[in-house]
Every structure is written in C-alpha cells, then in structure tokens.
C-alpha cells in the first residue's frame, strides 16, 4: 500500500463524509428541534437533484440551476411541512415513520410521472470538470474537491449560525425546552417551518451536488438515506457536531473498508476466502460500527443536551 493511494482514499472518504454530512445535518436538526423522524429526507435530496438537473437543461446555466434548485427544494420542503408534517410533531415516532414512509412512495412516484422512470441526463459543467494536481503523484477530480469545499463551508456556516446568531439561539433553546421558547413569545410554528425548510435546502444541496456524478432517478434518495441514519445515530441524534463527526467517521470507514479490507484480509486468510469475505464485510462494516457504538454509548458519540 503506497502513501499516495492512502492519501487519495482519505480524500475519497472525506468527500463521501461531507456528502453524508449535508444530508445528516438537516435530518438531525429537524429531529433535534421538532422531534420529528423524517424518512422522506431522502425524497428532498431527490427533488434537489431533479430540479437542478431540470433547470440546468432548460436554462443552460449550472450556477442559475443551482440557485433555482435550492430555492425549489426549499419551497417543496416548506409546502410538505405545512401540508403534512406539521401535525406530526406531537405524534409518536411510529406515526412519523409511517407518514414519511408514505411521502417517500408519493414523491418517488410523482417524480416518475413528471420525468419518467428512467434516469435523466445530468452532467458536470465544463469549468468544474477535470483534475487538480495536488502533489507530483496525486491528482484528484476537481468536482469532488468542490464538493469537499462546499461541505466544509456549510459545516462552518452551520456552526456559526447555531452558535452565534439569534436564529441559532432559538434553535438551541427550542431543542432543549420547547414550551419555554414559545412561552417567551417566539412564534414556534414559524421557527419550525424555517428550520424544516433549511434542512430541506441542505438535502437539496446534497442532491444537486450528487446529480452530476450519481444517477438521477426515482428512489435515488433511499439508497443513501439509510447510511445517513447510521451517521446520525453514531453521532448522537439532534447534534450537529455529532452529525459532522458521524459523517466523517462513516465516510472514512466505508471508503477505507471498501478499499483496503480485502487486501488486508488476504494477508491473513487465503485469497479465495478474502475474496468472499472482503466485499461482504465491507458492506456490513458501517452497521457493525453502529452496533458497537450503541452497545457502549446508547445515545451516540455526542448526545445532544436535551
């Protein structure tokens, strides 16, 4: 194993990690503040990818498409919140899981009606494609570096919003004591709608970033959603810090597992046994990690204060 490869795989892990973080941040915010389990978060990711791809095709400008896509996902998120989710805040998790499971079916089918069941074409704009020479031996796709950059920027921005702004103060207050916040005359409903829309926009951002490199098709959200749940459970549900740590851990473990588990096993097992066990174990690795974390810390690594 050479160092360049390890460095490259670390970048890959980081890139997967920030992508998971963008999704996990919205999900964990919504859970932490509204106590809502939103399985349909992946559907918003899909909506972001579809809207951006659609606007990219119709306007021809990727930058404009990104803005329209983000705004569109925000809008879809807010409408969903107003129409369906609002009444679910006071319900138990079971109702939330089921209703949002229904929303997944609804959105997947709606997208299939609007754009067909086949994956649609989406591509990276020319100015973001190509490679960057990082060291003499290591070159890395520019677009993936952009994803890492945006993800880290969002993490910093979120940290700033949550810890330094009035909105952040309300968010923190809302997470620890809802009744008190509304008793102080804050419009809690409005706060919820804002937070949900914000989470939806983050999911949309993840979706629009992933559109050009993944397949934009109905059901694309569910493929990644379960990993995102693993992230927030490991990190501690409701905690942005936890989501960030969890996302990076899961991104790294998954990537490094896929890359190095088989060669490592081959040094102790026979090649055929390593061939059989390597990929199977790599697929289960993050779930195993989650079980271990929960066995020792049932509230995740960074439990939120509430």
């Amino acid at each position: 194993m050479n160092l360049v490869l390890i460095a490259e795989q670390t970048l890959n892990g980081l890139q997967l990690g920030v992508m998971l973080f963008l999704l996990a941040a919205g999900l964990t915010l919504v859970f932490g503040i509204m106590n809502l389990v939103n399985l349909a978060h992946g559907a918003l990711y899909m909506v972001g990818a579809y809207l951006t791809t659609y606007f990219h095709q119709t306007t021809g400008s990727f930058a404009l498409a990104v803005l329209l896509g983000l705004a569109g996902t925000l809008l879809v998120g807010i409408v969903t919140e107003l129409v369906a989710l609002r009444t679910l805040y006071e319900r138990d998790h079971l109702d939330q899981v089921l209703a949002t499971f229904g929303l997944i079916l609804f959105f997947n089918e709606l997208v299939a009606i609007l754009w067909g069941r086949a994956a649609i074409y989406s591509t990276i704009p020319d100015y973001l494609s190509g490679h960057v020479q990082i060291t003499a031996q290591l070159r890395y796709p520019l677009y993936r570096l952009v994803i890492i950059g945006i993800g880290l920027a969002v993490a910093v921005l979120l940290w700033w919003v949550v810890s330094r702004t009035r909105l952040g103060m309300l968010i923190r207050a809302g997470a620890s004591n809802r009744a008190m916040v509304s008793a102080l005359g804050i419009n809690i409903r409005l706060l919820y709608t804002i937070v949900f829309g914000f989470g939806a926009a983050l999911a949309g951002l993840a979706g629009l970033l992933s559109g050009p490199i993944y397949a934009v098709q109905p059901g694309m959200g569910e493929l990644i959603l379960i990993q995102v749940f693993v992230v927030i459970v490991i990190g501690g549900i409701g905690s942005i810090r936890g989501a960030f740590a969890g996302a990076l851990i899961v991104g790294m473990v998954d990537t490094l597992g896929r890359a190095f588990l088989k060669p490592t096993l081959a040094t102790v097992l026979s090649p055929t046994a390593a061939d059989a066990a390597g990929p199977a174990m790599a697929s289960m690795l993050i779930y195993l990690l989650m079980a271990v974390v929960l066995a020792f810390r049932p509230e995740g690594l960074f439990p939120s204060r509430s």
Binding site: F31, V37, H93, V97, I226, F229, V230, I232, V233, I237, M284, Y287, L288, M290, A291, L294, P298, E299, G300
Partner: peptide
C-alpha cells in the same frame, strides 16, 4: 425511541 427504530433497521440491513 428513535435509537431503537434505527438500530433495528441497521441490524436488518446487515
């Protein structure tokens, strides 16, 4: 609560 939901889901995925 939510941890129970997620952990049972994760084990089944495994």
């Amino acid at each position: 609560g939510i941890y129970f939901i997620m952990i049972t889901l994760a084990f089944t995925q495994m």
